[in-house]
């Protein structure tokens, strides 16, 4: 069991990051081909799915551009700033990497839950949910600020004492695990797996706009968090993918910016600071309060 505790140089892990990410991307393209063959066999392959898929990859390109130009500097600043305040002295080995992945997954659960429940974050995450289809290319559909929100979890883990490269690795593992769930080709996995782990079935539910499926199954690798924290839903009725208010467009710019546009419009048009705040900080289903009621204390 000694190999579990053998120290690993973080710069090797940095190399795994790149290898994992890149080969996963190639693997996903091959898998996408299989999914297209399935669409074709079911007679569902049309210009809409092709356009949607192209849009997915264009949003990915814009997402990467924003990450490199704007967000990487922010991460550098915060990560290297908080490294000096680490709480614990944590070595880098397979055992501590495994612990880091579990923590990263739990923090991802909260990041993801917040991205669904606060309008200002939903503005960017709703891009990912705006596709009415469900295949592995949708996993690569990102919003403009999707790269920003993981920073809180990243800083928490660096403050705990995990090496920043290990934290990045753990986050990539969680992200890639989720990427693989974006498919209709896998129906249900064996019961123990469905009980503990997030699966394509659980994640289809997460992408559903059916009322009973809204705001459920936020988990990354483990669905246990949802079961524990009361946000779990089982796949029963067929899932209707996409947003409650669909965007009805395959234009990459519409897809990429619709969320920010909707929130900005709501905030600007709303009357009174209470409604403006509600449209910005409130949940997606926020409705403005009637302004005729003057019986409040002030």
């Amino acid at each position: 069991m000694n190999f579990l505790f053998e120290s690993i140089n973080p710069s090797w892990v940095e190399y795994w990051d790149v290898i994992l990410n890149d080969w996963f991307f190639v693997g996903a393209l091959i898998f996408l081909t299989l999914e297209f063959i399935r669409y074709r066999m079911k007679g569902r392959l049309g210009s809409d799915i092709v356009g949607d898929t192209i849009t997915n990859y264009i949003t990915l390109a814009m997402f990467i551009g924003i990450n490199l130009l704007v967000l990487s500097g922010l991460y550098y600043l915060f990560v290297y700033g908080s490294q000096d305040f680490a709480l614990f002295d944590i070595d880098t080995n397979l055992a501590t990497i495994a612990i880091c992945i579990i923590i990263a997954d739990l923090l991802y659960y909260w990041e993801h839950r917040c991205m669904h429940r606060f309008n200002f974050a939903w503005a960017t995450h709703s891009v990912h949910h705006s596709s009415p289809h469900f295949n592995i290319s949708v996993a690569y559909r990102f919003g403009p600020m999707d790269g920003l929100w993981p920073i809180f979890g990243t800083v928490v883990m660096v403050l705990l004492g995990f090496h920043p490269i290990i934290v990045a690795f753990a986050e990539i593992v969680v992200q890639l695990y989720q990427t693989a769930l974006h498919t209709e080709m896998v129906k249900k996995l064996p019961r123990p797996v469905e009980l503990i782990f997030n699966t394509p079935s659980h994640h289809r539910v997460h992408h559903g706009s059916n009322p009973e499926y809204l705001d459920t199954n936020y988990g990354g690798i483990f669905i246990l968090w949802d079961r524990l924290f009361g946000t779990f839903a089982e796949e029963k009725t067929p899932v209707v993918y996409g947003l409650v208010k669909p965007i009805n467009s395959n234009n990459p710019l519409v897809a990429f910016f619709h969320g920010i546009y909707r929130v900005a419009k709501n905030v600007i048009m709303a009357k009174g600071w209470r409604n403006k705040a509600g449209y910005f900080f409130g949940p997606p289903e926020f409705e403005p309060v009637k302004t005729t009621n003057h019986q409040s204390s002030n």
Partner: peptide
């Protein structure tokens, strides 16, 4: 994680 012994130490 901080208690995990380092094999090489």
């Amino acid at each position: 994680a901080s208690l995990v012994p380092s094999a090489d130490a």
